[in-house]
Nucleic acid binder design. Sequence first.
DNA 1: ATTAGGTTTAACCGAATGGTCAAATGTATT
DNA 2: AATACATTTGACCATTCGGTTAAACCTAAT
Lengths: 203, 203
Amino acid sequence: MTENDKLTEERIFEAATDVFVDKGMDGARMQDIASYAGINKALLHYYFRTKDQLFNAVFEMIARKMLKKFAPVFDENLTIEEKIRFFFKEHIAFLQENPKLPGFILNEINRNPARIKILLENIHFEKLWEKLYEQHKAELENYNITEDTMPQLMVSIAALSVFPFAARGLIEGILEKADLGFNKFIEERKEFAASFVIKAIKK
Amino acid sequence: MTENDKLTEERIFEAATDVFVDKGMDGARMQDIASYAGINKALLHYYFRTKDQLFNAVFEMIARKMLKKFAPVFDENLTIEEKIRFFFKEHIAFLQENPKLPGFILNEINRNPARIKILLENIHFEKLWEKLYEQHKAELENYNITEDTMPQLMVSIAALSVFPFAARGLIEGILEKADLGFNKFIEERKEFAASFVIKAIKK
DNA sequence: ATTAGGTTTAACCGAATGGTCAAATGTATT
DNA sequence: AATACATTTGACCATTCGGTTAAACCTAAT
């Protein structure tokens, strides 16, 4: 049953993804994953020998999926400002559908920083801003951005997009008292963050 | 021995802080904390009955310490721009000395959001931007900030300061290839982030 | 010196957890 | 129908972990 086979493995993988993202590596229980997938715990170990192996598979898949969302911006033929607006719209929309990913990834990275190096090799994520800088060298004359400050800019953009989700618990707690829902806050953020960055870098 | 007593309890508390911040609630082991404090595991339970109690004590102390760093800005008699520069300088300096706090807090908040509500009640952190907005109402005529967008601004400022530490593993992995140390990156960030925000909100 | 009370320890307990195994079940091939 | 092979399961194991207990230790007061 290659068909059923795939189904089982996929069900396991999806269950594992949900549980790991929700509880983290340390908090996740193999039994939970098995129950969630509607199978026996031994079958988990049949498909993925150990918890570590299962976790690594899940983590790499998620990290790849997330980092990939950063990439398409660089292929589009757009001005910097258009790219910035495009990025915030797309990336925040992605996070709206996967709101727990930021917290999960940041946490697991801190728990095991070594994993990142492997990840960054598999996905070629290096010198990403250099490419961007080359693409817009002429255009950047009108902006307060040099090659040196590109990393600062990139991290800032990532921060503005990712942080609200990573700190959702805090933000919700505070916004509540201003009776402003988190969803509305995020929806408004797509435009706010984009304009914020563009204003910030303009000469 | 009230003197020795305090010493033991303090040693335990400090050890617990280190271990919890490093491994998180789920990853931390009572035995590790005991060993780290140079005492017996039973003595841990003698001073702090359960792991939960110990963790709560540690977490609340850390959260209070960290959130407190946000407060002084509001007491100073400074212009907005001065406050922004002051904040980034002070807050990032604080994080330089406690680089693992952001990851720890964000993670534990996601793992147990309910705890936040209790915390936010103990520390009165509410409507903080309303105070700020009132203080600078007149001055804000020259900026693109309304009362509605204050939360967006506040979250953005926090993001720019906190995120690099929460994502340190990632940033280091990427910066490495640009042979720029994390420390240098952070040092430069104090000025970069401040100017970034000021530019962004100016009319 | 003895007592009393807080402090510290070694040994232990029960539950939970990651992982294993032999048996059972299903399935395709001959 | 019989064989061979992959899939699935229940029962089980060893270890780890949070927590307990009873006894030992220390110190100050009588």
